[in-house]
Amino acid sequence: MSDFLQHVINGLSAGTIYALVALGYTMVYGVLKLINFAHGDVMMMGTYVGYASALQFKQRGGFGMASVLAIFFLSMAACAAVGWLIERFAYRPLREKPKLTALITAIGISFAVSYGFQMDWGFLPGPNPRAFPEVIRRQPWLTLLDGEVTLWNWQVISFAVALGLMAGLQYLVFRTRFGRAMRAVSHDHRTAALLGIHTDRVIAVTFMLGSALAAGAGILFAIKDVKIEPLMGTQQGLKAFVAAVIGGIGNVPGAVVGAVLLGLVEEFVVGYTASSWRDAVAFGFLILVLLLRPEGLFGRVTAEKV
C-alpha cells in the first residue's frame, strides 16, 4: 500500500511536469498542425540557462525565494525568445509548403540543438551530465504511514508551479480576448484572418508561451532529477509529445490528462518491473492508444477536408 501511494505521488509529480511540456506541443500543433520536434530541446536550453543562473546565485550566497523566482523567470524569458526565433526563421517561411518540409526542418533543429549542446566548445556544455544546484533544500513536507510514504517539499513546490502555470494558461486561452483569437486561429487560420486577426502574431505568441512553459518544466525536471544533460530535451520532450497525442493532439485539457496518465503509468511500470524499461513505456503506451483510439482520449475524429 505504501509503495502504491508513493508511486502515485511520484507519478503525479512527473506527470504535472510533463503536462507543461505537452501543452506547448499541443498548442503549436493546434495552430500550425506541426509537430514541433524542437520543443523538447528548447526546454533543455531553458534548463541550462537555469543552471547557469543557479550557479551565479550559488556563488553569491545562496537561494532565497527571489533567486528561485529569478531562475524561473530568466529561463522562461530566454526560451520564449528562442521559440520566437525558431518560428520566425525556420517555420514561418515554410508555412505554405508541404508539411513534410516543416517536419524535416523541425527534426533538423532538434538534432542541431541537442547534439550541438553536446559539443565541448565555447559556452556549449558538452556531453557530461551536470548536477543542478540544490535550489530548494530537500525536506519531507508530509509523511504518511509511519514514514513509508513521503511527500517532499520540492514536490509540493513543483505541483504548485506546474498547476499555477497551467491555470494561468487556461485563463489566458479561455477567458481573454487574445485566447479567443488563439482558439480561432487554431481552428482555421484563414478564416481568422478574415476577421482582422493578425495570425502571424498569434502564432508567434503561441510559440513563445509554449516555450516559456517548457522552460518552467525544464527547471522543475532539473530540481526533480538533479542530473541534466543535453539529450534530456529529446528524451523528455518526446514523452511529453506522446502524452499530448494520448490526450488528443491539439486539445489543451487533453494534453494535461494525457501527461498525468503517462507520468503515473511510467512510474508504476518502472516501480514494478525495472528502470531499464522506462524509455519504452511512453512509446508502448502511444502505440496502444494509436491502435485503439488514434484521435486520442479527447480528440475529435476529423475528416480531412477535400
Binding site: R183, A184, H187, L194, G196
Partner: peptide, 19 residues
C-alpha cells in the same frame, strides 16, 4: 460559413469586432 465550432455564439460574434 467559417464559424468557429469550438467557440460560443457570443465568442464568435465578439471576434467579429476584433479590430
Amino acid at each position: 460559413r467559417g464559424i468557429f465550432p469550438n467557440l460560443t455564439v457570443e465568442e464568435n460574434l465578439g471576434l467579429g469586432a476584433w479590430l
